[in-house]
Structures are given as C-alpha cells and as structure tokens.
Simulated assay, not measured.
Amino acid sequence: MKKDEFLRKLNTFIRNENFAKIDEIIKKFREENNLEMICTSSQAFINLYEYNEAIKILDAIKDEYSENGEFCIRYAMALYNSNKEDKSLEWFEKAKEKGIKEIDETSSKYYPKSIDEWIKRAKLWGPRRIEKNNFEKELREKRNKKLILEVNFDKNVLKGLWYNDEYSLKEYVGKTPIDEDFVKVEKELGYRLPESYKALMRIQNGGLLRKNTFEVPFQRDWSRDLVDVMSIYGVDSNKIYSLCGEFGNKLWIEEWKYPNIGIAICGTMTGGHDMIFLDYSDCGPEGEPCVVHIDQEGDYEIAYLADNFKEFVEGLFEYKEDEDD
C-alpha cells in the first residue's frame, strides 16, 4: 500500500473515531520494527489537527528514530501546533540538518512549505510561549488555594449581570437551588463546587450574561487581551444548558475532548470551540479552583483568567464597541 493511500485510510479511521483499528495497525508495525510506517502514521493525526496524538506516536519511537529527517519534521510540526513552539525549534533545525528543505504535507494550506520559514516562526514564538507559561505558572503558585467559605457579591457586581430574555429563561435559568441540588451535582461531577458559585446560583440559577467580557491577566500586544463569556451554567439539570444538562460538562469532556481538569462552567459565542472552565488541576477536587479559558481550535490551549470564581465574576463587564471601531 502506498503512503498516500495509507494516510487516506488512517484519516477515515480517525474521523470515525476507530482508534482500536489504528492501534492494531501501529502495533503490527511495531512488531515488524517498521519505524518508517509508524512515523508516517503520525501524519494522519497531524493532517486532522490531532497534534497531541501525533506526539504520542512519535514519542514512542523517538529513541530509535530521531535521526530520521521525516521524524524530525513531523515531531517539530506536532510540537509547534500543540502550543510548544519553544520545544519545536530544535527539531525544525535538526530536520534542516538532515536535509529537509521543504515540508511536503502541512495541516493547513496557509502554512509555509519552507523549513527556513518555520525556523523563523519558531524563533519568534518560542520565547513568547516561554514568557506566557512562566507568567501563568507564577500566578498559579501565588494564588490562595484555601477554600473561600463566606461569599457576598457587591450589588454593583450583580447590577446588569444577566441578560434575561425569553431564550435565556427557557434554556438556562433554573429553579432556585437548595443545598441538596448542589450535593447531587457535586456527586455527579466529582468536584466540590466553589461557595462563590453556589452564592451566585442562589441569586439566579444560570443564564445568559449581559456583562459578557473578561480581560485576561496576560497583556501583550501579540496576545489576546479579552475573552467573551456568553453564559454561566446553573445546577438545574432540567435545563439543557446546565452543568449536568444535555449540553453540560459531560458533553464537553467526553465528546468535544476538552481536557479533564475540572468543570465547564461558562459557554462562549463560538458554540463550544472555546470554553471557560473551573480548573482543579493544582488544588484537587475538594479545593478552590482557578478559572481558565480553553481554546479548542488552538489545540485546547489553556489560558489563566482568575484565581477563583468570585474574582472572575467581579471582573466581568459589558463590552461596548467604540463608534470608531
């Protein structure tokens, strides 16, 4: 079977989520010690933007096959597109040393073919990635992870927070919750809900937001400075847009493949292509989660937003475009 035909076959398996068949094929190549075809199979995942899966395949043969130029360029592309631009540089340079001048296949028609152009990109974005990662690491290390037990929202924070049109009331806003409602949702999700979230839900149990914008803490002229926040999910499971509703946490993690770091708490204008999460990865399921933005279109890149849910809600504001804009 020619490589092009093989990649088309793998592409079909990936689209159909037939990962058992893919594992079977790669296992067979491993038994035959056919490192070339294992390396080639990673291209199918790169073609379909499944960069982390490509990295897993390539990591498994890195010790044995890292001197191969095709390996180097595929590894570099997978790293670069999974938000590891800083780590991709050495592999782009190594691919060039191995005689690679152009990339035959890229996952986007807008990507350059020239290896020199990719090296230039990695040199530009690698240091920026390091800066962003270090900045957000410092925020995580400094934040107070102790539970916030008594929460009151200032009236100015609550004023104009919700956008209660007919659609919001029908699909989002649930009945006023009691303690048993929170306990039931916590048991299903496997996480302790922040007291600040419970306090807000007792005022209004979910809904569309009028104050629908949050300013990210990492401010650079080359980075995104605002995220939109369309809604907050409530705890009334009868509403399709709620934590345990039809379009709730389970959907985003199991079907949309968002990282299993906590709870999808807010929807955005993209219809699921980016989400706001409560992130428990540095505090455990019983701790006080921070709030993060996850970009599904950007290989699930995580951006730190706020130390806790209360701070997040207090930072929301209504975005109004300038007439000049």
Rank of each mutant, 00 (worst) to 15 (best):
S66Q: 13
K87Q: 12
Y80C: 07
D59E: 15
I119F: 07
L58A: 11
K120N: 02
I119K: 05
E105K: 09
W125Y: 12
K146M: 14
I115C: 03
L149A: 13
F92Q: 08
I100L: 03
N133T: 12
R74K: 13
G126H: 04
R74F: 02
R143P: 10
I61E: 13
S107C: 08
E97R: 15
K145H: 10
P127V: 02
F135L: 04
K145E: 14
K120F: 00
A95M: 01
K101W: 07
R143V: 11
A54T: 04
K145P: 08
I130Q: 12
A95K: 01
F71I: 04
A122S: 13
K98L: 11
C72V: 04
D116N: 14
K137W: 01
S108D: 14
E53I: 06
I119D: 03
I61W: 11
K101E: 14
R140F: 12
A54P: 03
S107M: 04
Y75Q: 04
T106L: 06
Y65W: 15
Y80L: 10
S108P: 02
K123G: 05
L58M: 13
Y65I: 13
Y75V: 01
L147S: 14
N52L: 07
F71S: 03
D59T: 09
L89S: 10
G126Q: 02
A60H: 14
E53N: 13
